[in-house]
Amino acid sequence: MTGATTPAFAFALPDNVDRSAAAEMAHAFAGAIQSGKDVIIDGSKVTHIGQAGLQILLTGFASARQRGSKFDITQPSDSFNAAASLAGASGLLGLS
């Protein structure tokens, strides 16, 4: 152990990241980021993601980094990767 570990907030994305899921994500991410937690996102179940969901992830990523926290998307599914790539968002989400 080398020093204090930043508390982490884990969040598993649903299979369909639509507008209603995005609203839920925004609320959850805002709470975690404001409290200074790292955010660890499991993207393995995602089969569909739309603009609303991508926007929340993009702003979550930027907001967390701005506050010095982590915002990691782990195990992105193929669908997730394909959608992020199509939208030109892969780099902005740290996926490439």
């Binding site: 507008r19 209603s20 995005a22 609203a23 994500m25 925004a26 991410f29 805002a30 980021i33 404001q34 603009q51 609303a52 991508l54 926007q55 929340i56 993009l58 702003t59 979550g60 930027a62 907001s63 967390a64 199509l86 939208a87 030109g88 968002a89 902005l92």
Partner: peptide
């Protein structure tokens, strides 16, 4: 993209902070 297009830029400069974003609003430009 299916007719030969490719996203060359995703402008997210209008995205608000996570605590101000509204899920049903649109903020990006492709």
């Amino acid at each position: 993209c299916s007719i030969g297009g490719k996203v060359v830029d995703l402008d997210i400069s209008a995205l608000p902070d996570i605590d101000a974003i509204e899920a049903d609003q649109s903020y990006v430009i492709w």
